[in-house]
Design a protein around this nucleic acid. Structure first.
Lengths: 103, 103
DNA sequence: ACATCATGTAAGCGATCGCTTACGGTAAGT
DNA sequence: ACTTACCGTAAGCGATCGCTTACATGATGT
């Protein structure tokens, strides 16, 4: 039931930008902040939220912190969405058949 | 690029409850409000957001409005997540190989 | 025509959110 | 030891959000 925190984390546009930036590979906080219209502490706060949602992981490298995408949060979201997708298709199929019979 | 509105819509816990309730089949506004700890106008406002995100669709049936899940918003979300998933796996593979070579 | 059901909308309020600036802490270089 | 680089955290502020109550609207029944 932890997909909730993942969705809430990805709801913010700035956090999505950070997440999509990490898609191209790991990066440090300062580097991430350069390509964004917000301050470095803001990026740090966003990374904390993403980390708690298991969407990113952190690795210390000297004085820097390297962040990379964590597949755990992503897979939880995928499982939830896939379940929904199957149910939705089933319902559409059932409704279509019902309407067909009524004719 | 419309997956953003879908994620933002599903970020709210109450909206997720409504959406999961609709998973079991179409329903009217008043019926949905009975099983929730919020007022009926609140549910109506949430349904408006879900509709604008193409996550639900509306059908008029006399004085009532029947809401059901719309697969459009769902499929957009799935496509976005699937792309992310593929990239994430690629990066992990590349990183693992790189570390292996360094040894 | 009138009453009633079912719903959308407007206004307002308290709470949460995202941002900035200021500060504290740790690691590397000289 | 001192400075510099890199980062997390605290405090505070303006804006957005979700909720409620009150009102407006359209369809159904008598």
């Amino acid at each position: 039931m932890a997909y909730g925190t993942a969705i809430e984390a990805l709801a913010d546009p700035t956090r999505r930008k950070i997440f999509e930036r990490l898609r191209r590979g790991p990066s440090a906080v300062g580097v991430l902040a350069e390509g964004l219209p917000v301050s470095r502490p803001a990026v740090s706060q966003h990374l904390k939220v993403l980390k708690e949602a298991r969407l990113v992981s952190e690795e210390q490298d000297g004085a820097r912190r390297i962040y990379r995408i964590d597949p755990q949060g992503l897979s939880q979201l995928r499982r939830w969405l896939d379940g929904f997708w199957d149910d939705a298709l089933e319902n559409f199929k059932a409704e279509a058949e019902g309407k067909g019979k009524k004719k």
